[in-house]
Simulated assay, not measured.
Amino acid sequence: MLNRVAVRPALTAWSNGWLSLACALLALLIEQGVSSTAAVTLPMYMFGEYMFGWWIIQGCAHFSGRRWPRHSLRKIIPALALLSLALPQVIGYQFRSVFLIQSLVLACCFLIALIALSPAFGRMQSSPGLLAMRGALVLLSLLFLSYLPIFGSNMLLNTPLPMTWLRLSSATHLVLEFLLGFGGAVLVLEQSNRNVAAHNKALVNDNARYRADGERDALTNAYNRQAFSHLLNAAIDGRLSVKGTVAMVDIDGLKQLNDSHGHAAGDDALIRVAKAVQNVVRAEDKLFRWGGDEFLLIAFDLKPAELWSRLGSVNTDLLGTGNVMVQASFGVTEFVDVDDLLNALQRADLAMYERRRECAALRRQDAFGSGSEMPIRAKHKHIAAV
């Protein structure tokens, strides 16, 4: 049933083992009821138990990560079938002689399975399924080894079998094999749970990475409006304390720059302005690409005067980069909580346009007062300082 929902090589091998054991016990049941069928049912019983041991070992090896030879089943089935047919011819068709051989073979199979499973002990020390399987394999090995002197003395000395002991050992045998199967099922479920947990962790990491990529503007690497929506939702939900200062940043004359020098120059201007602003603000401040030529800067727990001080060097820094002159206008205002944030954006936008008009007036006054004697670069520096 587990193999239908959790396909694992170890689980498939163990399932085949338990089916082989069921067939072996069915053949033994027929032999006990109809003794005349011993020539057929006893070899079938022996072959089924040999295959049970083989599959248990293979499942343990698979679970521990050991390499198992391919196509080995094609070789082992004829060999075990031949052994099952030949042994009764040698030792006779009495159950006690057959069971003596089976006890030795199964004890060895359980010990080999324990060895095959041993690499898993180091990496899964606290696994309930592994503890159950290890305990069951050890106790089953000891139990089947205990049958050797009992049945051996019965055959050699013709002493009566200790029926009370055999009844108790049969019940113990049943419990231990159930524990072995239960441990294998738990191991597979634990492995599936670890795989699901690892898959979920990978999905969470991928989701976080895709979300981070989806919240960035591809051109400037500033945050986009989707990121602002997430920040606003977090603030509304109370997961983020919101107060501080906002600034609207607008590139002066971007349309004319695109018309005169092409869109590549316009893109370069956007990148330069975004980088210049990010260079002067703090790591925790958020810069958003707000529109075509506008950026929104949110500085948490920062007063407007300090943000003005930081932004004051942006235009000066822009003069030293690029082949085309780029300047930006700023509008700064304070907000006290999340309800005030959206209103603060409008106030900052109005302040930015007012600042641009003031700067334009100063430029005209400066140009009128200075004439044409001042070098162009000096004029630009003077305007940027204003």
Rank of each mutant, 00 (worst) to 15 (best):
residue 1 M to A: 06
residue 7 V to F: 13
residue 9 P to A: 05
residue 15 S to V: 08
residue 23 C to M: 03
residue 37 T to S: 01
residue 39 A to C: 07
residue 47 F to P: 00
residue 69 P to G: 10
residue 72 S to F: 15
residue 74 R to M: 14
residue 79 A to D: 05
residue 90 V to M: 09
residue 99 F to C: 12
residue 102 Q to Y: 10
residue 104 L to H: 03
residue 105 V to W: 02
residue 113 A to N: 00
residue 115 I to R: 03
residue 119 P to W: 00
residue 130 L to I: 02
residue 130 L to C: 02
residue 131 L to Q: 14
residue 131 L to R: 12
residue 133 M to I: 09
residue 134 R to E: 14
residue 139 L to V: 14
residue 141 S to W: 06
residue 142 L to M: 11
residue 146 S to Q: 10
residue 148 L to W: 07
residue 150 I to T: 13
residue 160 P to H: 09
residue 161 L to A: 00
residue 163 M to G: 12
residue 173 H to Y: 14
residue 174 L to N: 14
residue 174 L to G: 13
residue 196 V to H: 05
residue 202 A to C: 02
residue 202 A to Q: 11
residue 204 V to L: 12
residue 205 N to L: 09
residue 210 Y to R: 12
residue 218 A to Q: 15
residue 225 R to T: 03
residue 227 A to D: 11
residue 252 D to G: 02
residue 252 D to F: 03
residue 259 D to M: 11
residue 263 H to Y: 07
residue 266 G to D: 03
residue 275 K to F: 05
residue 281 V to K: 04
residue 282 R to G: 01
residue 289 R to Y: 07
residue 293 D to W: 04
residue 298 I to F: 05
residue 299 A to W: 01
residue 316 T to W: 06
residue 318 L to E: 01
residue 321 T to M: 11
residue 326 V to H: 03
residue 327 Q to F: 06
residue 331 G to C: 09
residue 332 V to F: 02
residue 339 D to V: 09
residue 340 D to T: 00
residue 342 L to T: 08
residue 344 A to M: 00
residue 348 A to L: 01
residue 354 E to R: 11
residue 364 R to G: 13
residue 368 F to T: 12
residue 368 F to C: 10
residue 369 G to H: 13
residue 370 S to D: 06
residue 371 G to S: 01
residue 374 M to D: 06
residue 376 I to R: 13
residue 380 H to G: 10
residue 381 K to E: 14
